[in-house]
């Protein structure tokens, strides 16, 4: 924190928003440190209980002591504390923190910097999560409005059962079936009739580097299917509440058409909690995509962490998951601030 930063902070201190932001950001510190430590501890105990990941590299061939030591240096498991079950390896943790403070997030078992890994994996996942959120807004909100306009009606049940059904079928089955039907069958047919690239990209089986958006649409649908029910339910509930609100009655009394009342007044207000929820779920979408990313061969954050957990690459797991925690916290903060800006009834405090 140099001069200008301090000056900036000072400037902020006068406004309540600045004070609020400073306090919230300060709260991040213990949360992040806690997350770092918990993750570090879990990975450490994992290595202590389940064996040194460096040994697994050699497979069924027993390595010599020297070969094993060389590999342990690569994995960062050459500290003797990794042989004592329950030892939190605090020196390793402190060392990790020091490095992180200097921007060094460690390396994976191929000695590639974790920062590079994140730069490779994050953009794709961010696109995927963004598309998923758009799909939820489009499909989920439409379904929710359909259901909310007349609670208890036929459409209400259709929306409820169909969205819940998507939650009830395991996501890997939804993903595999989508890939088979839309990707393999329909996608091949499209290719056969010579459809344009964009169209075959939309129905491609695996992520395509030449179609960085289109080939993520189908996976985004699968990813969104998990929380479609929540979005639809939330829209329905809050729309129903708003439709009963005084201002709607007033608007109706003033003689506005029902479309206008619903579309302009009630819906706009109903969307606030929906968007809040989606904002919060952004972080979860980033990481919750492990399964979807695997099925559609998307090189994303979820898969990065999954692979790192499987091979026991502590530095990658600790850094990436902590960053996900940070993203989540930031999303929350942004939403809270926006909320206060949009809704004057809420005071930041």
């Amino acid at each position: 924190m140099g001069g200008p930063g301090a000056g900036g902070l000072k400037g902020l201190e006068v406004t309540p928003l600045g004070r609020y932001l400073a306090r919230r950001l300060l709260q991040f510190v213990p949360t992040l440190l806690g997350a770092l430590f918990i993750l570090h501890y879990l990975m450490t105990v994992g290595i202590q209980l389940n064996g040194d990941p460096a040994r697994a590299v050699f497979g069924d061939r027993t390595p010599s002591q020297s070969q094993l030591q060389a590999m342990q240096r690569v994995f960062g498991t050459d500290d003797p504390c990794f042989e004592q079950a329950g030892n939190p390896c605090l020196t390793v943790f402190v060392h990790r923190l020091e490095n992180m403070a200097q921007g060094d997030f460690g390396v994976d078992s191929r000695e590639r910097p974790v920062v590079t890994l994140i730069a490779e994996h994050a953009p794709i996942t961010a696109r995927l999560a963004l598309l998923a959120i758009l799909i939820e807004l489009l499909v989920g909100v439409t379904a929710g409005v359909l259901a909310g306009l007349r609670g208890g009606s036929f459409w209400d049940y259709v929306v409820k059962v169909s969205t819940t059904m998507l939650v009830a079928i395991p996501i890997f089955v939804v993903g595999a079936v989508t890939q088979l039907v839309l990707g393999v069958e329909f996608g091949s047919w499209l290719k056969g009739v010579g459809a344009p690239d964009l169209l075959t990209g939309l129905f491609s089986i695996a992520y395509r580097t030449d179609q960085p958006w289109a080939s993520l649409v189908m996976p985004a649908f699968v990813l969104a299917s998990l929380s479609l029910a929540t979005t639809a339910r939330l829209t329905r509930t809050s729309l129903m509440e708003n439709l009963r609100g005084d201002y709607v009655r007033t608007a109706t009394a003033k003689g506005l058409t029902r479309n206008r009342v619903v579309g302009v007044h009630a819906l706009r207000n109903s969307l606030i909690p929906v968007i809040t929820n989606l904002g919060i779920s952004f972080g979860n979408l980033l990481a919750g995509a492990v399964v979807t990313e695997g099925i559609f061969n998307i090189r994303g954050i979820g898969g990065l962490v999954f692979g790192a957990v499987a091979t026991g690459e502590a530095a990658t797991v600790v850094s990436v998951v902590t960053i996900l925690v940070l993203v989540y916290l930031l999303c929350n903060l942004i939403i809270d601030v926006l909320y206060a800006v949009l809704d004057p009834r809420i005071r930041l405090d």
């Binding site: 806690g34 993750l39 994992g46 990481a287 989540y328």
Partner: peptide, 24 residues
């Protein structure tokens, strides 16, 4: 609340993944 923040912010599936991979 900070403790809850940590576990709230940990993505459920990844958290379970890390946690379970620790256990024998």
């Amino acid at each position: 609340s900070r403790l809850a923040d940590i576990f709230f912010a940990l993505p459920f599936l990844l958290g379970a993944l890390v946690f379970l991979s620790m256990l024998r």
